[in-house]
Design a protein around this nucleic acid. Structure first.
Lengths: 211, 211
DNA sequence: CCGCATCCTCATGGATACTG
DNA sequence: CAGTATCCATGAGGATGCGG
């Protein structure tokens, strides 16, 4: 190995500007997508790699290292090995990422095509699309996409989503990614979405949320 | 020239996700900084280059071309030549960029150092820092930084900023970038900021905004 | 001049093999 | 399984050229 002093490079914009300095930290390729994977909760290296189709393992390792140095990511020793999670500051990227994802929603209209998809990504996308919506009383519906349960909740504080636990909502719609996004984005009606999928439980919450 | 068919490359993440598709469009290096320059209003190529220290001329040209193709940027024929501006959709990047800039504010705490600075950048940074703040009646103060007047306004809709026109506010603080950012971010008191700069006009609005 | 296009060099990204 | 090491393709940066 050559005396590779400054291996994890550092191509800074060199600008006294909050946006530019933020991009110095998370602007490199793959960085924000790594953060997206970690937002719902810590993952192991192998899970991260599987969730990020196309990322090279050396890049993933290097990005995790530099984001740990900059205070965005932290390692923890989970029972089975190393767990990568977000620091408190790193988790605050949720807001700008949701905003950017919302800006990109029109780009989803052209459909999935041959693109990759992981149900986990819906925990960022669904609240982003529904941003600003509130509901009282709260509504909770589940979406079973490719076998993973995503629980969407809308209450007086706005929308939020999580990966489903034992706590299953009354209503679960089993459907594919395009159907779920189409329904939430308003491109599909509730009836069209139910026709395209399989409804388990009570349709009322679904209609209440997306009438 | 080789038969360079797909010259403006297109390294897509290939993911069905609003964030990933947004990054396909504006995630390449310099793209968001170009948009930042255009947010306060259209600029010419030379002005853009001067406002973005370090950008290579071929990169700037290529980025402008691809962002025009993707519908973020549009050319207009101003009297003196070509003007680059944002489309309506491109201007909607303001919200995610402010959010990301706000996330990066802690990185400004270490000071300017040898970094470049353009007063124009404050029109994004100041509202980002003050996000959520309202004031009734509205307050308007000016900051004269390196000869450019930045007008900050806080009203019931929140903070906004523009490049100063004939419409000068009652209060103008002449100071450097670090002082202005320190004052707005709360790291400096009004008195400290006035001591560090030169106050023109009535100090009352300044105290009302940053008491 | 201004608005780019070309050229050249080197840093960075991507794919894959490899190792503790 | 969790990363490193290696090799090649590509993109960034900087200087310069050139037509309008």
């Amino acid at each position: 190995m050559v005396d590779n002093v400054n291996a994890p490079s550092r191509r800074s914009y060199g600008q006294f500007c909050g946006l530019a300095r933020a991009l110095d930290v998370v602007g490199d390729r793959w960085n924000l997508l790594i953060v997206r994977e970690l937002l719902p909760g810590p993952l192991r290296y192998g899970e991260l790699k599987a969730s990020l189709p196309g990322v090279a393992s050396n890049l993933l390792a290097e990005r995790l290292r530099t984001m740990e140095e900059t205070g965005v990511v932290e390692r923890a020793l989970g029972g089975a090995g190393v767990l990568y999670g977000l620091t408190r500051w790193g988790a605050e990227l949720k807001e700008p990422m949701e905003a950017l994802g919302r800006w990109g929603v029109p780009l989803l209209a052209e459909g999935r095509g041959d693109d990759e998809f992981r149900p986990r990504w819906l925990t960022l996308a669904l609240p982003a699309i529904l941003h600003g919506r509130t509901a009282t009383p709260a509504v909770e519906v589940g979406f079973d996409v490719e076998g993973l349960l995503i629980v969407l909740r809308i209450d007086e504080d706005g929308p939020s989503a999580r990966i489903g636990d034992e706590n299953r909502p009354d209503t679960v719609l089993v459907a594919d990614a395009e159907t779920v996004v189409g329904l939430v984005a308003g491109a599909l009606t509730v009836d069209q979405a139910i026709d395209a999928g399989e409804l388990r439980g009570d349709p009322a919450p679904l209609r209440q949320a997306f009438a």
